[in-house]
Design a protein around this nucleic acid. Structure first.
Length: 362
DNA sequence: AAGCCGGGGAG
DNA sequence: CTCCCAGGCTT
């Protein structure tokens, strides 16, 4: 192809933009779900919802959103909270860097913008965790600005309506869709337009078997007219995860407290808590006590495994063997580990995998 | 461009 | 099982 704008012009040459906008917006205003973050246009609430909704289903987000807003009703309240408190509110939702970045960004809003979420695209984009999608979502939904908010739904819906066969896994394709949205977005109601595309993707133009008979923009859809809606969007495969074996240790002392530790500040499940994990890919089973003494300064005797847990992440798989251990002697010497009473465990943020392990404590 | 970063539900 | 979900950051 020549250049991007030429491609966009070509795609939109025979597209009935005005009627498409009207059909989409009318449908959205009539059929949209009642969701807590749609109560008003408070940019803080819109922001929190958009972060939570990243790679996460609406039904999963609803209870988290309500609890989060109740606990941190304003930017100021979130800014002054402990990070552990925020992670606890995020516990089980996944992608925990979202929570840390959100608080980081909100603190910047409070200190540098007087607590008011910026309306300027560049200022918004400079905030931690606010990428092209979230920026556009906040600008259009909270501030009624005609900015593209291109997510997976929008790419699926538009690839079908406009019969676009570019690979949506490529970021150049996302740019293409942003360019298209800039051309076709409603200037009068960009909020309903953007949300309408996403709502359509969630309720009608679904990945597997779209409900084309119920679609409000069926007459605008090139893929439907050609009967190829199931073939779109085009997306390259993702490779499968690597398995990593661990022994998760349940170590209790004489007071009945259990040993837990805070994970590193960066990387997987950053700053969440866990039971000590021994990488069994590197450590021979009989050397486990020796390895543990070197790391923690304590002598332990591993018992028999009481359970196995397989936990799947997006890029790897943990094979966890749950092993209760007796604490023989020595003194705990580890910067991020401590003994905690059983009834205090619940105040620490744990990933779901270790919440399952914790059930074996009793 | 590719890898890292969670967890859940649909089919 | 596979896919994917209102993505962003890092390398």
């Amino acid at each position: 192809m020549k250049n991007k704008q030429a491609q966009i012009n070509d795609i939109l040459a025979d597209f009935d933009k005005n009627n498409f906008q009207q059909d989409l917006i009318n449908w959205f205003k009539k059929e949209q779900r009642s969701l807590p973050w749609r109560d008003n246009q408070d940019p803080y609430r819109v922001w929190v919802s958009e972060i939570m909704l990243q790679q996460t289903k609406v039904d999963t987000v609803i209870p988290y959103f309500n609890r989060f807003i109740e606990k941190f009703p304003t930017p100021e309240k979130l800014a002054e909270a402990d990070e552990q408190e925020v992670l606890k509110a995020w516990e089980g939702l996944g992608y925990y860097s979202r929570a840390r970045n959100l608080q980081n960004a909100i603190r910047e809003v409070v200190s540098d913008y007087g607590g008011k979420v910026p309306e300027e695209a560049d200022e918004l984009a400079s905030l931690k965790g606010v990428g092209p999608y979230t920026k556009g979502a906040i600008l259009s939904i909270a501030y009624d600005k005609p900015e593209p908010a291109v997510d997976g739904n929008v790419m699926r819906v538009l690839s079908r309506i406009l019969h676009i066969q570019d690979d949506i896994a490529k970021q150049s394709t996302k740019k293409l869709f942003e360019g298209i949205i800039r051309e076709v977005i409603s200037q009068e109601d960009p909020s309903s337009f953007n949300q309408g595309l996403m709502e359509l993707g969630a309720l009608v133009c679904t990945p597997k078997s779209p409900s084309c008979m119920l679609c409000p923009v069926q007459e605008h859809c090139r893929a439907y007219q050609e009967g190829v809606e199931q073939e779109l969007p085009v997306k390259t495969k993702t490779k499968k995860q690597k398995k990593v074996p661990y022994a998760a240790l349940l170590i209790t002392n004489e007071q009945g407290e259990v040993l837990v530790q805070q994970r590193p500040e960066q990387g997987l499940l950053a700053n969440l808590w866990e039971f000590p994990m021994v990488p069994m890919e590197d450590i021979d089973r009989e050397h486990l006590p020796h390895w543990f003494f070197g790391e923690y300064g304590m002598m332990i005797t591993p018992g028999k495994a009481v359970d196995k847990i397989k936990h799947v992440f997006s890029h790897l798989i943990w094979d966890l063997e749950i092993i209760p251990c007796t604490f023989d002697k020595g003194e705990l010497d580890h910067p991020r580990a401590r003994f905690v009473a059983m009834d205090e465990l619940e105040s620490y943020p744990f990933p779901v995998s270790h919440q399952k392990i914790a059930k074996h404590c009793k």
